[in-house]
Simulated assay, not measured.
Amino acid sequence: MRLINCSSLFSFFSAVIVVFGSDETDVELKPAFNPCKRINPCGATISTYPLLEPDAEESSGFGSGAAPPVYDEILTHEIYDLNATPELHNSTLCSCPEDSTCDFESDSNVVKVDYHVTLRFCNLETISTVCKRNDVNVRVIGAAQASGDSVQEVSNAVMFCNCPNGFSRQPAESWSGQDISLNYKCL
């Protein structure tokens, strides 16, 4: 007797079929997104900056003690060239009311959490500005970058309140599988 895996069957039926008009009918399966809750961003943008490159003059004599390395935990935590143009990767996390899509073009629905993670909301006005300083106020979950410094893609996020003075990142936590959780508190 063969049993049917209910989660696989549900995943199959929860796909949305999109048909594009053309001479040939193209069918594309896209996952159906859950509706966004008040604390869920509808999308996230990951900014990936290039690594800093050592200056040839400064790094050439490091073995002799002439110059410090480009990255040293004692000297700095900056290993990325934040002056360079980043590569952007958008992820849709949930659907806005009336099945509208998340707006990745507007700046009115954006909360920049740090140099790497930007969250986008259906309606930013629904997020409270009253925050508890000692609690985690933002959690971003996704597949870890090879460096383990941040996420390469966001799979889930929650923001309990919008901190008017910005956020302070806490240590990353292991999550399920290859995912990590980036936690932020209010400044």
Score class of each variant (00 low, 15 high):
V110Q: 11
C163H: 03
M159R: 02
G65H: 10
D99Q: 13
L82F: 15
E173W: 09
D23P: 08
S181C: 12
A157C: 06
S106Y: 08
V130A: 15
N165K: 07
H116C: 07
V111M: 06
T76W: 07
S168Q: 13
C102H: 07
R2V: 04
L29D: 07
V111E: 12
P35Y: 04
F12K: 01
L9D: 00
Y80W: 15
Q170N: 10
Q170S: 01
P97R: 04
N123G: 08
I141M: 03
V16M: 11
M1W: 06
L51Y: 14
V130M: 03
D81R: 05
T126V: 14
E125V: 01
N90K: 04
T85H: 11
S11M: 09
C163M: 05
Y184K: 00
C102K: 05
V136F: 03
K37G: 07
D114T: 09
P164N: 10
P50Q: 13
P164R: 15
C96W: 03
G21P: 10
S11R: 13
W175Y: 13
S106I: 04
A84F: 08
L187W: 06
G63I: 06
E87M: 09
V130W: 03
D179K: 13
P164C: 08
C161W: 12
S106T: 15
Y80G: 11
G65P: 07
N34W: 00
I127D: 01
E57T: 13
S174P: 02
T85Y: 11
P41Q: 05
S100V: 05
I79F: 14
F33P: 01
S155Q: 12
C161M: 00
M159L: 06
C94N: 04
Y184P: 04
E78S: 03
A144G: 11
V110Y: 00
S8H: 11
C122Q: 09
V151T: 13
N34Y: 06
E173L: 15
M159C: 11
F104G: 03
L187F: 08
G61Y: 01
S64H: 12
A56F: 14
N109T: 06
Y184T: 08
F104V: 02
A15P: 00
M1F: 07
S168L: 13
C96Y: 04
A15V: 07
L52G: 07
A157N: 07
T126W: 06
C186Q: 00
L52R: 15
V138C: 00
E78H: 02
Q152N: 12
P86V: 00
Q152Y: 08
D72V: 02
D26M: 14
N109C: 05
V130H: 09
E53M: 12
N162Q: 15
C96M: 11
N165C: 01
H77A: 14
P35G: 00
S64G: 14
F33K: 09
Y184M: 02
N156A: 13
E53G: 11
